[in-house]
Design a protein around this nucleic acid. Structure first.
Length: 215
DNA sequence: ACGAGGATGCTCT
DNA sequence: GAGCATCCTCGTG
């Protein structure tokens, strides 16, 4: 299971997001075993992208663009983990893309579990142990990933992205991204059509934002 | 099968 | 105080 190189990630985010489909997510655990999942769903977050944490807002008075503090990681060197707590509940795993100085990240949304299923089950809530890794918050639970790995280089153990055991040519489909309110017009979600481990969430129609009490 | 609503904490206004 | 790159539970068919 050979780790990918930083050169792999130092490329346009859309290319990385698509090529990560079929690659392996590998987590070595203290007990000596390892967890392996095959990536079946990703999303790209670009620099010029209102849905990205790299997005800045223009100050009305000064006209200067103020960027969010956490977005700075996305401008940093490629191949690093960007991990954040979503809805106060779930950790989400991204890998930083593009050369240093340019912002980009790919969200790992779903993997097909291949090795270490017992560990994964043990880290998922009782009763929900069949839906191991078919969602971005679920897979971080199953792999026991949180902000301990913030900025960890994902080309190195104990947590890395690697070439799969068998490099099958998986079909890749696209859609708009899931769970966002801005930037829905872009088809920047990549997934393996028909794969059982793709997240069950459905993207809304591009350009349409579903809100509470609407539709 | 599917939809609505709540949990929960951090960042930014 | 609002808004989340989510998931789970509990309704209704």
């Amino acid at each position: 299971m050979k780790p990918l190189t930083t050169e792999f990630f130092s490329r346009p985010t859309l290319v990385v997001a698509e090529e990560l489909i079929g690659k392996a997510l590998v987590r070595e655990i203290d007990a000596g075993g390892r967890l392996v999942g095959r990536i079946v769903e990703t999303e790209a977050y670009l620099e010029d992208d209102p849905a990205s944490h790299a997005w800045g807002v223009r100050d009305k008075s000064t006209g200067e663009v103020q960027r969010r503090r956490r977005g700075a990681i996305l401008f940093g060197p490629p191949g690093r983990a960007y991990i954040y707590l979503n809805y106060g509940v779930y950790w989400l795993l991204n890998v930083v893309t593009e050369p240093e100085g340019e912002a980009g990240a790919v969200l790992i949304r779903a993997v097909e579990p291949l090795e270490g299923l017992r560990f994964m089950r043990d880290h998922r809530p009782e009763g929900k142990r069949r839906d191991l890794t078919n969602g971005p918050g679920k897979l971080t639970q199953a792999f026991d990933i949180d902000d301990r790995f913030q900025l960890h280089l994902l080309t190195e153990p104990p947590l890395f992205l690697g070439e799969p055991v068998q490099d099958e040519d998986l079909p890749v489909a696209t859609s708009s991204r899931i769970g966002i309110s801005k930037g829905r017009e872009h088809s920047w979600r990549f997934f393996v059509p028909g794969n059982d481990w793709v997240s069950p969430s459905k993207p809304g129609r591009p350009g349409r934002v579903r809100r509470k009490g609407e539709g």
